[in-house]
Computed example of a mutant assay.
Amino acid sequence: MTIVDLGEYGADFTANPYPYYARLRERGPVHQVRAPDGGLFWLIVGHEEARAALADARLSKSPATIAATMLDEQVVGPYLLVVDPPDHTRLRKLVTREFTARRVEALRPRVQQVTDELLDAMLPAGQADLVDTLAFPLPITVICELLGIPAADREAFRKWSNEVVAPTGPEAGEAAVHELAAYLDDLIEDKRCAGPADDLLSALIRTRAEDDDRLSAAELRALAYLLLIAGHETTVNLISGGVRALLDHPGQLALLRADLGLLDGAIEEMLRYDGPVETGTVRFSATPVPVGDIVIPPGEMVLVGIAAGDRDPARFPDPDRFDIRRDTRGHLAFGHGIHYCLGAPLARLEASVAIRTLLERCPDLALTRPTDAYDWLPGLLMRGVRRLPVRW
C-alpha cells in the first residue's frame, strides 16, 4: 500500500484539507500516511468507518498498547484520553458525578455576563481580532472560574495551553507541559489546605464514589489538565470558526439574522462543516483491525479523521455546502462512544450565547482581510485560525 506523504501537500493542506481528504476518500476509507514531522500512522477518512473506529475497543487509547508513553501522560498523569476501561470507566464516573448538566446550565447567566462585558470593551473600537477579544477570553474565563483558577494566572495558562495543543517547537511544547503540571500541583495543594469551596476542582478533590473510591493526586492533576485545555481550546475555535463560516456565507448569515431560532442548528452545522477538532487524539491497534478492505496491523498508531468524516458525501449530501438548516445528526465533532466529549454541553452553551449576542449587537459584522490571509493553527489536532480580524 502506498504511503501518503501529507508534508508534500504543503501549507495548502493546513488551510483547506478537505479537497485532499475527498481525494483520499475516493481511493478508500483508510490510508497509511506520513505526517509533516515524519511520523507514520493510519488515517481514517470515511464517516461510517470513523464512527465505528471511535467506538472500537480494539483501538486502544493507552500508549502502553505499543509499549510507549506520551509526554503529557508521563509528566501530568493518566487522564481520560490515554486510558482504557476499566480505568477510563472509573475516572469518567468520578468526574461526571461533579461535572453535571445542572452545573453547566447554571453557568448560563455568567456566560452571558462575560460575553456582554467583552463586547462592551470591544465594540467602541469599530474593529478587532475576534479571537483575542471574544473567542478566547470567554471560554478561558468560564473554565477557569468553573475550576477555581485565580484570574491573575490566566494569561500564563493561555501561553501554556497554546503550546500544548499547537507547539511552536518540541522544546517549547515540552516546557509548557512541565510548567502547567507544576502549577496544577500547587493549585490542588492550595485547595486542599483552603477547605471547602464551590468550584469544580474543589468538588473533585472531595468527591467519593459509593465504594469510597476517590481521585489520587496524580489523577486530579491529570483531570484538571484535561478539563482546562479541552475546556477552552475547542470552544475558542468553535466560536471563531463558526463566525468565520457565517461571514464566508452571507446568504446563510442573512438567514440566521432573520430567524435566530435557527441558531442551535447553525451551531451543529458549524461543528460539522469546519469544526474545531480535525482528528481525534491518537489510538493504537491492539489487534488486527479491518477498515474497509484494509486490515490495520496490531501495534500501529491510528488517527480518526473527524473533519474528513464529517465531509463524507455518503453521510452528508453536498458536504462542502454550509447549510444551517441541514440535518447534522450523526456528526463527529464531539467524538462518539465512551470517549465522547465531556464538555460538549458547555461548548454548545458558550457558542450559542457568544454568537447570538455578537449578531444582535453587530448588525454590520464583516471580515477585514481576504480569507487567504488567515494564520492557521499547525498540526492535525486542532482546526482554526490564530486571528480573525473583523469590523462592524
Rank of each mutant, 00 (worst) to 15 (best):
D199Q: 01
R361G: 04
D327W: 13
G169H: 06
V33Y: 03
T234P: 00
V390L: 09
P288D: 14
R329N: 07
L6K: 00
T368F: 08
R383N: 13
D185W: 12
T287G: 03
D199E: 03
L215F: 06
L246F: 04
S240R: 09
T368S: 14
W160A: 13
K61S: 15
F41N: 05
A217Q: 11
L255K: 13
P139F: 08
E8N: 05
E268I: 12
L91A: 09
E210K: 04
I140Q: 12
R206Q: 11
G195L: 01
L227K: 07
Y9D: 03
T279Y: 11
M301G: 13
R34N: 02
P319D: 11
L71G: 09
G251F: 02
T168V: 08
Y273P: 01
A354E: 01
R192N: 11
P378M: 00
L123D: 05
S216Y: 05
D213I: 05
D185F: 12
R257Y: 13
F136C: 13
A203T: 07
Q74T: 14
W160N: 09
P109W: 01
V390T: 08
V82K: 07
L228S: 07
I188Q: 08
R27Q: 15
A209Y: 08
P85G: 14
P63Q: 04
I296F: 03
G384N: 03
A217G: 02
D56Q: 06
R391Q: 14
G305L: 02
K159Q: 15
R283K: 11
I267G: 08
D153P: 03
L253Q: 10
G28I: 03
G343N: 04
L367G: 12
G292W: 01
L246M: 14
R321T: 12
A151V: 15
I324N: 02
R90S: 15
D87I: 12
A197R: 14
T100L: 02
R272D: 02
A55K: 11
L134K: 00
V243S: 12
F99I: 14
G261T: 07
G379Y: 06
L130N: 08
A258F: 06
I143Y: 10
R103K: 08
R329W: 01
G77A: 14
I267N: 07
R154V: 15
V165C: 06
S352Q: 14
L80D: 07
D185L: 14
A156W: 08
T234Y: 02
D264R: 07
P288C: 05
Q74A: 14
D37L: 02
D129N: 08
T96Y: 00
L187N: 08
L118R: 01
D185V: 13
M70I: 11
D318W: 04
V295D: 10
I44D: 10
T328Y: 02
V30R: 00
L358S: 03
A258M: 11
D320G: 12
P319I: 04
